[in-house]
């Protein structure tokens, strides 16, 4: 499968996927994203639900058994992990290119 078609990730999607490396329900993910981004990225409830729906459809996250009868638990799938790793590589290479140009100019 061509994984690179999912890239680049939006900042919101990136943080949600990062938060879902460990299983969690929707609101836990909202809190985790805020914490990971030092309060810079805040995902609203409607946006969060839409993102979960979309990631499930793309099979990047999956629903896992939940102890809470109302709240579903989600976790990153193997595909999601792969996409996240690829995105990190992409971001790294961007930074590398920038640093190279900067050092050449110096």
């Amino acid at each position: 499968m061509n994984v690179s078609k999912y890239l680049p990730l939006t900042e919101t999607t990136f943080y949600i996927m990062l938060a879902l490396r460990k299983a969690g329900h929707g609101y836990a993910v909202m809190q985790k994203v805020e914490e990971l981004s030092n309060g810079r990225v805040r995902v609203a409830a409607g946006t969060m639900y839409g993102a979960i729906e979309n990631l499930i459809k793309q099979k990047m996250i999956m629903s896992v058994p939940s102890e809470d009868s109302r709240r579903k638990m989600y976790q990153l799938s193997p595909l999601g992990l792969e996409v996240l790793a690829l995105e990190i590589e992409r971001l790294k290479s961007l930074v590398e290119v920038y640093q190279q140009i900067e050092s050449e100019e110096a």
């Binding site: 609101y27 909202m30 409830a45 709240r71």
Partner: peptide
């Protein structure tokens, strides 16, 4: 699940 998310938020 949707309602719980909105209530939590």
């Amino acid at each position: 699940d949707y309602l719980a998310l909105f209530e939590d938020a």
